[in-house]
Each structure stands twice: as C-alpha cells, then as structure tokens.
C-alpha cells in the first residue's frame, strides 16, 4: 500500500516548527520516519501535513557538561551506536542503540522520535527511564521545559506533550566511572519488538540502584533500591522474590508475561554483575 496524500514542510528552526504545529491541528512531526513510515504506508496514519524537523541544525547536536550529556532529538540510533557522541553511561547507550531494530533503520531512526512515539517495547523508553534522563520540550513560547522520561511517558503511545510542542533533546545525567548497567531484551527474533525488557543500574558513587521492567504494554515500571546499597539487585537472585517485587511495583501480565519480565530483569542484573 502507498501512503495517502500529505503536504510536507521543512522548517529551519524549532520556533517555525512550533508555529506550523499551532497552525495545523492534524499535522505530524517527522524525523527519521522509521515508525511513522510504515503507518503511513498502511494508511493507518493519514496526516494532512508532515513537518520534517531533520533540517533543524540544533536538534542534531550534542552538548556535554561535567554532569550530563544532552542528546539532540534527531540524533540517530546509529550515531549513538557508533559512539560518535559522549558516553554518559560508560558505553551503555551504545549497547542499547546497537540492539534497536536493524542497522538500516538505526541510520535514520532518532532518539527523540522514539521517545515521542512512546512505544512500550522501544529500547529508549526503558533504558532512559532507568538512567533518570529528562526530556527537553519546547513550545511556541520558546522556553524549554524539562520532564523526566518517567513522567513524559504516560502510557502506551501516550506522552505528556502538547500538540504545538516538540521534543528538542534528551538530557542524560552522567553516571560515575564505577557505575555498572545491565540490559536484557526478550524478543522473538533479532531486531523484533521486545516482549520484555529488563534494565539494571547501580552507581555506588551516586547512590543509585534501580531496576526497570519495560515492554509490558504500558509505561515502564521503575523500582528504586535504597540509596547507597545494591540490596535491590539481590531480590532478583530468586525468581519468586523477583516476581513479588515486580508484582508489588505494578507490573502486570499473565503467567508467561510475568515470567519473562522477571527473567529480563534478572538477566539484566546478572549482566550488571558481569556474569
């Protein structure tokens, strides 16, 4: 199938993009189009106007400070995979990026696009939630607001953004050098959508210990351990206590789903511990 007809516009600046959105109620922002493209080709999405933000220079840049790396919204998964940008999480972002779909998708798919889509199965939704990243959103006023990924993603395909706002970047706080992360994705075949995602982060210097269970159909579920200890991780040494922990945290699903959610987190923890 071919897409229904649409108009196409290519703003130069974020302000122009926001103005265009404000003027066009049903317009859709597109970056790499790797998620929207299939929907258009299936005619399940039929926006009258596409606003291509990939020619807005500032959205494709990286800003690094001592405490964080800010990744522009249109930075591709491939750029992150190839470690062309700063590594706020000791290589963890590159590792996550390399597992997204396929290379020819990663070269165009963008971190901002992925987050705005908020597909529960998407890698960035779970992994950036675990890192405590914040999303930068700009509206017609021009003043960026920052919202944590956890608050930004309200549910499946549902994000806290107004129609005339766009995501300009992701602010990823740096982990300390001693921090370790684990990531485990369960899917039917390479590059396919996750049925369960487990993320584990332990940063003793920052007192952070967190696990995330993602791809459960809604927003990822975050479990924070007590500051300064990694006791939380031990919960997942045993599948029963792991399951109890996820149950309490609000992960839902039938027995199979719960079993693979526990396994995903458990294996992320194992990876974190280096075994």
């Amino acid at each position: 199938m071919k897409s229904a007809a649409f108009d196409y516009v290519r703003p130069r600046s974020v302000a122009e993009a926001c103005d265009l959105l404000a003027e066009n109620a049903d317009a859709k922002v597109v970056a790499g189009g790797q998620s929207l493209g299939p929907m258009l080709n299936l005619r399940l999405a039929q926006p009258p106007l596409l606003i291509d933000i990939t020619r807005i220079a500032e959205l494709g840049r990286i800003a690094e400070t001592d405490g964080a790396v800010t990744i522009g919204a249109t930075v591709t998964h491939a750029a992150i995979e190839d470690q062309k940008i700063g590594a706020p999480a000791n290589g963890f972002l590159a590792r996550v990026a390399s597992g997204i779909a396929y290379r020819a998708v990663r070269t165009r798919g963008t971190i901002g696009g992925s987050l705005v889509h908020a597909d529960p199965a998407a890698d960035w939704v779970s992994s950036l939630t675990a890192l405590g990243a914040e999303i930068l959103v700009v509206g017609p006023g021009g003043t960026p607001r920052r919202v944590s990924v956890a608050d930004f993603v309200r549910g499946a395909m549902d994000v806290a953004i107004e129609h005339d706002e766009i995501v300009t970047g992701v602010h990823v706080p740096r982990l300390s050098a001693t921090a370790r992360c684990g990531y485990h994705k369960i899917c039917r075949k390479t590059g396919e959508f996750a049925e369960a995602i487990g993320v584990a982060v332990f940063d003793p210097d920052r007192g952070l210990c967190r696990v995330v269970a993602g791809a459960g159909g809604g927003r990822p579920v975050v479990i924070d351990g007590a500051r300064g200890t990694d006791r939380l991780l031990a919960t997942f040494d045993d599948p029963r206590s792991g399951r109890e922990c996820l149950d309490e945290a609000g992960v839902t699903g039938d027995d199979y789903q719960m079993q693979i959610h526990v396994a995903a987190v458990q294996r992320a923890v194992q990876e974190l511990r280096g075994r």
Partner: peptide
Amino acid sequence: LRRAILRLLGRGS
C-alpha cells in the same frame, strides 16, 4: 491496535 503499535511503531523515528 496495541499490537499494531507495538509491532510497527517501536523503532523510533
């Protein structure tokens, strides 16, 4: 539709 979305939209755009 959820499956549709899960299947098709998770790639990030």
